[in-house]
């Protein structure tokens, strides 16, 4: 009975929101105003993709382009529920992108653009990674005493936190997986990859860790000194700041690597133009421009060969499990149990 009521409320909520439409954070328009624009829906701030988009428009002066920024949930809703006619969808929420592709809402990408891409950087011919970024550990100034060396594994991080409980009390920050989709994805992947995650959750809980919705907020607090440790911070945000403010550490037991993925929805009006744009993104030039904008390495298999600790989050239907309502609920209950000690 309770479940029925819950479902009804959800449905009501969903229909209310659908009526209002998905929430947009930014809406930019480029190129000649009279041309039909290529519509891009993205979770990524325009700044990061600016170099590549500018270059694309220079190369195609007749083309106009609309760049809409929304949160990953809203991006998913716009396509899956509202069937908005966007031509390209770029999102850092791998699980939601995977669900769009898995549920048959994406059309095949140009085959020649996918040629030569490593298997981990694409799923079928529907979903392709356009940028990769590591999920890193950040240590603010004063996190380490003079003689201490920065931790290189989660085990060492645990030891550092445990041994200096006073120093880190209330000064550890991480994603709130209950609020942030990315945070949940990272936590779920962490839990899959190692047992230390749960011990880390316990320690963080014991030290009254602060929970955040977004990487940028965490970084802001780290810069002001409110935080000393940021766990699971998106590399692109961390790199955007001067290295003087804090130390960025890729843990060597493993460092998750998030893939920003692109797809062409079935509802696209300009599938040809979208294919052309994706071809440009995946060209050597495009990859270099994305890398410059994000300050991150482009998609290249060699990066993983050189740095064996980098683990790309697997781009396959395994990600659907992370989206499962019941599974998520169970995971969050467990996580809360670990974080909140009696």
């Amino acid at each position: 009975m309770r479940q029925v009521a819950f479902a009804a409320v959800l449905t009501l909520l969903a229909s209310l929101r659908a009526a209002m439409g998905f929430e947009i954070e930014d809406d930019l328009r480029f190129g000649p105003p009279d041309a039909t624009p290529l519509e891009i829906l993205s979770t990524t701030d325009f700044v990061i993709l600016e170099p590549v988009i500018t270059a694309y428009l220079q190369q195609n002066p007749a083309r106009s382009l609309r760049y809409v920024v929304a949160s990953s949930q809203e991006v998913y809703r716009a396509i899956a529920e509202e069937h908005r006619a966007f031509d390209v969808v770029i999102s850092s929420a791998m699980d939601l992108q995977m669900k769009l592709a898995n549920d048959g809402l994406a059309t095949p990408l140009p085959a020649e653009a996918l040629r030569g891409l490593p298997a981990w950087a694409r799923w079928r011919d529907l979903l392709v990674a356009v940028a990769q970024e590591p999920v890193v550990l950040i240590l603010g100034k004063g996190a380490l005493a003079a003689q201490e060396t920065p931790p290189s594994t989660r085990r060492e991080l645990l030891a550092l936190l445990r041994d200096n409980a006073d120093r880190f009390e209330g000064k550890i920050g991480s994603y709130d997986p209950a609020v942030s989709g990315a945070g949940y994805l990272f936590a779920a992947q962490d839990a899959r990859l190692s047992d230390t995650f749960w011990r880390l959750a316990e320690v963080m809980g014991r030290m009254n860790a602060r929970l955040y919705c977004c990487s940028s907020d965490m970084i802001d607090d780290l810069r002001t000194g409110t935080l000393l440790v940021g766990y699971n911070v998106l590399g692109s945000y961390a790199m955007a700041w001067a290295k003087d403010d804090f130390q960025v550490i890729e843990l060597e037991d493993y460092t998750l690597t998030l893939l920003r993925t692109a797809l062409i929805p079935k509802s696209a009006n300009e599938a040809e133009g979208a294919a052309d744009f994706i071809r440009f993104l995946l060209s050597d030039n495009g990859k270099a421009l994305i890398a410059r904008g994000a300050g991150l390495p482009a998609i290249e298999a060699a990066a993983f060969d050189r740095n064996t600790h980098l683990r790309p989050i697997r781009l396959d239907p395994g990600l659907l499990a992370a989206l499962d309502r019941v599974t998520r609920q169970r995971f969050l209950e467990e996580w809360r149990a670990a974080m909140v000690q009696p």
Partner: peptide
């Protein structure tokens, strides 16, 4: 206590999808 729970096994999904990059659907 909260009702029925299930752990959707992401590894299993990965493996089911691995051969030929299949799409996965489920329902409980």
């Amino acid at each position: 206590d909260g009702g029925v729970g299930i752990d959707v096994p992401s590894g299993t999904f990965s493996m089911l999808a691995a051969m030929g990059e299949e799409r996965i659907f489920y329902r409980v």
